[in-house]
Design a binder for these strands. Structure first.
Lengths: 207, 207
DNA sequence: GCGTGTGAAAACCTTCACAGCT
DNA sequence: AGCTGTGAAGGTTTTCACACGC
């Protein structure tokens, strides 16, 4: 369920604030969802709450972390160390959530050897070796759209089965490979769409 | 509808490849969705296709661009020029899709004055002035989670009605303000969740 | 009394399948 | 013949509302 990480994050802030017990209402507020939905979601994992009382923050936190695999350390490679790859390599949210960036790769020879976030950029050709050496299961594509399919193919060939794709391209991959796409400009476009609706539509009506 | 920008991007690649007419099947393939869904979505905008023939790429492209407001130029401000803000400021996908970054703001005095992507970083306090001067309707928050709510409050006070939030925080804003959240690490966590499912779950079952 | 867990209802989204136009 | 536009079917998610346990 795609909302579990959000709940986990909300639980973490509650725990940091010293809260030890919370109601579904309270947690739902912190996570930005409605409380019935939260209870349905949690009931799907098991009965971790106490009727009349609520949820134990620490206990629930552990249960969700286990459910979504945050007890592991997931080795990750990032391919394409341009602006975005740079930002991702430095992004603390990855390391603090059980993701370890084991390698940064780039096809551009001018970039290999540079050190970013304490890791040296290596040539793209090293991918297969790194994947098998570290048991990498997740790859991040931050390369330009034109290169994205090649990168994905190489990742699949190297044995990666989960890909997070930041390139604005639709990837063709085998059935068993999971791809999630994040497109920064699409989010902005969606906002612009709503914005246009709000401020008197300019000729966009259908008759 | 959140898929229109995807269709538009697919149409652009088709146009670049010299295609002048396409079937729903063809376009759906390029956009990574199924053709019935694509036809439903497009039929919601109007009848822009021709039965027995398909869609005219250029015409449909214009219709979608108009629908989602890509005929405008949307002035945007980015607040928080750390690694991510840096990457966003340099991201070509914004400018090429009708978004013009009119200002980069950061609360840290050490950063103000630096030039990123050809734009000088200005102090956060300049926000209100910039918003009214350029008629900014969309704000991007790339600040740390702890500052996100303050930034959002200032944006709302300055008159911004649409916010793209990259900080891992739930924002409280007035009803009429639109917030979209992008959380880079949540996407990775979702992949890790599926990955764990695939490779024999480790003690995560109920009972 | 309070708040979880959960059937049942409602809303929503996707897919099917075909009538109707070119 | 071929492909769009769309009602109807099917599936999934969200919400409601309340029985049950603390």
């Amino acid at each position: 369920m795609a909302r579990l990480p959000v709940y986990l994050r909300a639980l973490n802030s509650l725990a940091d604030a010293g809260t030890t017990t919370c109601s579904s209402e309270h947690l739902a507020g912190a996570a930005g969802v409605n409380s019935a939905k939260l209870r349905k979601d949690l009931s799907h994992l098991g009965s971790y709450g106490t009727r009349g009382v609520g949820y134990d923050v620490e206990y629930l936190r552990y249960q969700i972390a286990r459910e979504i695999g945050q007890t592991h350390d997931w080795p990750v490679v990032i391919v394409g160390i341009g602006n975005l790859g740079h930002a991702l390599a430095n992004y603390s949210g990855f390391s603090s959530r059980g993701f370890r960036t084991v390698a940064l790769l780039d096809a551009d020879p001018a970039r290999t050897g540079q050190v970013v976030a304490g890791t040296e950029i290596r040539p793209f050709g090293d991918l297969a070796g790194i994947v098998s050496e570290h048991g990498v299961a997740i790859g991040v594509i931050a390369a330009p759209a034109s290169a994205a399919q090649d990168v994905a193919d190489a990742m699949v060939a190297a044995g990666i089965r989960s890909i997070l794709n930041f390139a604005p391209a639709v990837l063709a991959v085998p059935e068993e490979v999971d791809v999630r796409k994040v497109d920064l400009s699409i989010e902005l476009q969606i906002l612009a769409y709503h914005e246009q609706r709000k401020s008197g539509l300019d000729g966009a009506e259908a008759i």
